[in-house]
Design a protein around this nucleic acid. Structure first.
Lengths: 335, 335
DNA sequence: CTTTATAATGAGAACGTTCCCATTCCTATA
DNA sequence: TATAGGAATGGGAACGTTCTCATTATAAAG
């Protein structure tokens, strides 16, 4: 039905090889031939068959974006979706397409084997196991790890300066003379979780501020748990004057509860979130939060991966993306 | 490097055909053979090559999701991302993968020709031209149109009951005795725009409520324009007691301005949005809005498309998805 | 006007499957 | 024991490209 390279060849008198070249590397073909070929192609509605091409070239120009997040699917994930958008952008630029998947759906019925020479490389986000990376590599699929760190040969890991971000947040509060600072820590991957907490505790200790056990809480990072935790925290006899939430969803839960309890923000309660998700500027007052340039992370990951695929050196590397404190309405210091 | 069907065949003594069958249609292969084949496959790290398979089967099991939205990219698009998630879900279930693209990036350097037998079918969202659909079809790529309606042969269009949603919103306000209702209409595709407006005007007329020109406004649907428009509307000598915003971003802009102007919601101003985006439950008070079940739309589109691809009948059809009014804090009647 | 280098074109194999058609192997029935 | 019939297996062509190598056309130099 759809015409092939042979149809075009027959129609315009050039060989299949020349037709192929006219599309794949036009500079190898004479001006005249190219024009004729393009014309008849258009006329016959011919388009190079990407599958056949991938078959002989042994590369698909497809990448996989793999996220294992039980709570939100990729596209709706406030954290990963901007990263994915970044990936998408550089892939577009560099001629790649992207599949979304999680680890389950790329498994074969055989058991442990993973499928798909349909992708040249994958970006694996967050939770996974080294075993998975080995399996991909065994199939010649290159891997870049994002928002996680494994100590493996030739593996590029792209992560975030979680510690530094937390430090900036707490320093900002302390600078204003606030000492009663509680933390609601989301139960993320161990690495993230610990680093953000370390930032909190370090700053307090450096300033000789006493840490109260009641101010240190951990929850699953859902809005519901956040609200419940905030209610508890704000009902304490000596309630905190600031709450550091380790992501924006939690922080928004806190804002909502504080508003319901009639507390004025930031006069009676300062709140800082983490991630600068697209939700943070929606709530009123708008959220002071630690920004991670997620699109940039995605671009970086995609670029690293494509560099490798295009013959770049495969070398072990851990890249820590910087964070910025974004001052908004839930904190003093917003002009 | 990666092993092929022949490696497995050589290793375990069965023919390539049997190996092929063990993966593609296991029921045609004896229990014993299957076990042996799977074992050696695992051992040799063999995986069926999806590209080669696609080549002979002439189908890739890939769909394209095409969105032409200048404002937001797909993944970050509050309207299309839930739809995409729905698409993704049914595709996962039915064994398909999905590419994201817009129309530009699937064009060939030849000019008008469109590329990619890498997809069996596409879902085109929103703005496009009939010509585009023709071009896809000329390449044997089936099309389902979403959130747009063209009068074309054998074309499935999936759209929304924009009119009905608007009617529900305005009726709800009128029921409470509110008559001074303004509309801020986002400048969407003509169809959407007109239908939502028609709902607004019809209800007012049916109740013999006078419509004021000053209450009827149109803007580009950005937060900034919305705020500006709201400020203007709320500074009128006879200001509206309710504002119907034709999407949630606009509505949130209105809420923010009203809050800043010290108006109490909903006592002094009721607000209704449209779409029930994930932002609508973030703002405080939470937004009363017209819900569209976007994931369901996505699922429907994917199912329709896959049905066709799997040999289903190709018949012209226009499906209108229903809407629901979600009562929340920006309106009376929230329990 | 020949020779030489370069640009433009072609023929054939290869890529790793699936599918059609044939063949072999069982098992049950006569 | 012979025979049929289905289940299980195999061989070869085909899918639509690209790539290597060879050939021809074209231009530049002697």
């Amino acid at each position: 039905m759809s015409s092939t390279i042979f149809d075009v060849a027959r129609e315009c008198g050039y060989s299949k090889t020349t037709i192929s070249r006219a599309f794949a590397s036009p500079e190898m073909v004479s001006e005249k031939a190219r024009r004729i070929i393009y014309d008849t192609a258009r006329q016959l509605n011919y388009t190079p068959n990407a599958i056949a091409r991938a078959m002989v070239r042994k590369q698909t120009n497809n990448l996989g974006f793999i996220v294992n997040d039980q709570q939100y699917p990729v596209v709706l994930n406030p954290f990963y979706s901007p990263i994915f958008e970044g990936v998408l952008q550089t892939c577009r630029q560099r001629g790649y397409s992207v599949f979304i998947a999680n680890e389950e759906e790329i498994q074969l019925p055989t058991g442990q084997v993973y499928v798909k020479k349909q992708m040249d490389g994958v970006i694996i986000c967050g939770k996974t196991e080294p075993r998975v990376i080995d399996e991909f590599r065994a199939q010649n699929i290159d891997v870049v790890l994002l928002n996680n760190v494994f100590d493996m040969d030739e593996l590029v890991c792209i992560t975030i300066d979680h510690y530094g971000g937390a430090v900036k947040a707490i320093e900002h509060l302390v600078e204003q003379g606030i000492e009663e600072i509680a933390i609601i820590n989301g139960h993320f991957s161990p690495y993230v979780y610990k680093e953000r907490f370390r930032g909190y505790i370090d700053v307090l200790m450096r300033h000789d501020i006493e840490t109260k056990d009641a101010f240190i809480t951990t929850i699953e990072p859902t809005m519901e748990e956040a609200k419940q935790c905030a209610r508890q925290l704000l009902s304490l006899d000596e309630r905190p004057r600031a709450i550091f939430a380790t992501n924006d969803t939690i922080a928004i839960g806190v804002v909502k509860v504080a508003l319901q309890m009639g507390l004025s923000i930031p006069e009676e309660l300062s709140i800082i979130g983490y991630d600068d998700s697209n939700l943070s500027a929606i709530i009123e007052p708008e959220l002071t939060t630690v920004r991670i340039d997620k699109e940039e992370m995605g671009k970086l990951a995609a670029n690293k991966l494509i560099d490798i695929l295009q013959g770049g050196e495969r070398k072990k590397e851990i890249i820590e993306c910087p964070t910025t404190l974004i001052l908004r309405g839930t904190t003093y210091g917003h002009h």
